[in-house]
């Protein structure tokens, strides 16, 4: 439980931080995933650059019908900011499910996204929200879609020297109903499966629906088979059940001490149905 020695920098500007990272330093945000690994000496970075203190990464603001969330916004910020609560409740609700209060007070959205833990909560919501993720390095900036960003277990589109600087989510039109439903692994609090649903009605039918699922396999994904089985169909319990049954279609489910692949896949179906039901009840 004692880390190797390391150098620590807390630069005043993002440009400075990116320079250090280009030279091989490792970003530190909330430290909620990185520090435990360091204490166990499973990770031994030589140089940490603290991003969490950079004012340039610390904001939540609305621009052109979208919410821009700085990478250093904590889970607590996202959970409680009036902007996220009012204009992107799915993200706020998801943030509230992360870990415990201590973790939410320190952990950041940038750190969570960059870490790409297969059981992290945010990715489900970001998939459903079709969020954009802004990456920057000393040599430039690019924006990638959530679908392109998450590649596999702990693997993202981030290139060496690049960091997450911002997450962009849509301002939710008032008629959309959203919900995040999570089956938590009781020891760690991470998701065994987590399902984010965005539902719009079209009369008595389902309109466009987006479903994001985390925890089930190596990385989060859009459950398009479920979405297709809902859109245009009557908004009934029958439709929901039939659609949710496709939640794990074509997915190679994980297995661990807390849930075998078979059980996880079954939970994905149950929690998908719950998320749709709950989102539907919140839609207008």
């Amino acid at each position: 439980m004692i880390a190797n020695s390391f150098e620590y920098s807390s630069p005043a500007t993002l440009a400075e931080a990116l320079g250090l990272i280009a030279d091989g330093a490792k970003p530190l945000s909330g430290g909620m995933s990185l520090i435990p690994m360091m204490k166990l000496r499973l990770a031994s970075p030589e140089h940490l650059v603290d991003l969490a203190r950079l004012p340039e990464l610390n904001y939540i603001r609305e621009e052109h019908g979208e919410l821009h969330i700085g990478a250093a916004a904590t889970h607590h910020d996202v959970e409680n900011a009036p902007l996220t609560r009012g204009k992107c409740p799915l993200l706020a609700e998801t943030a509230a499910h992360i870990g415990d209060i201590q973790v939410r007070n320190r952990g950041t959205i940038g750190g969570s996204v960059a870490h790409a833990d297969p059981a992290a909560d945010y990715p489900a919501a970001l998939q459903a929200l079709e969020a954009k993720i802004v990456l920057r390095s000393a040599s430039g900036e690019r924006t990638v879609s959530t679908a392109d960003f998450f590649i596999d277990t702990f693997t993202t589109a981030l290139e060496p020297g690049e960091i997450v600087v911002e997450v962009i989510v849509p301002v939710e039109p008032g008629l959309t109903g959203t919900s995040y439903q999570k089956c938590l692994q009781p020891a760690s609090g991470f998701a065994i499966v987590g399902v984010a649903a965005r539902v719009r009605r079209d009369g008595d039918n389902f309109g466009p629906v987006q479903i994001g699922i985390t925890g089930l396999t190596g990385t989060s994904y859009r459950a398009t088979a479920v979405e297709n089985a809902l859109t245009g169909k009557p908004a009934t319990e029958e439709t929901i059940r039939a659609a949710a049954a496709h939640a794990a279609d074509g997915v190679d489910a994980n297995s661990d001490l807390h849930a075998s692949a078979e059980y996880r896949a079954s939970l994905a179906v149950s929690y998908t149905a719950r998320a749709i039901r709950s989102a539907l009840s919140r839609s207008a």
Binding site: L40, P118, T155, Q185, T217, G218, H258
Partner: peptide, 20 residues
């Protein structure tokens, strides 16, 4: 080793990813 005690929930996924 240490990996085994802290990584239970990741082993399966990681092994599969490495093979892939």
């Amino acid at each position: 080793g240490t990996m085994a005690a802290v990584g239970n929930r990741m082993i399966d996924m990681t092994a599969r990813m490495l093979i892939k």
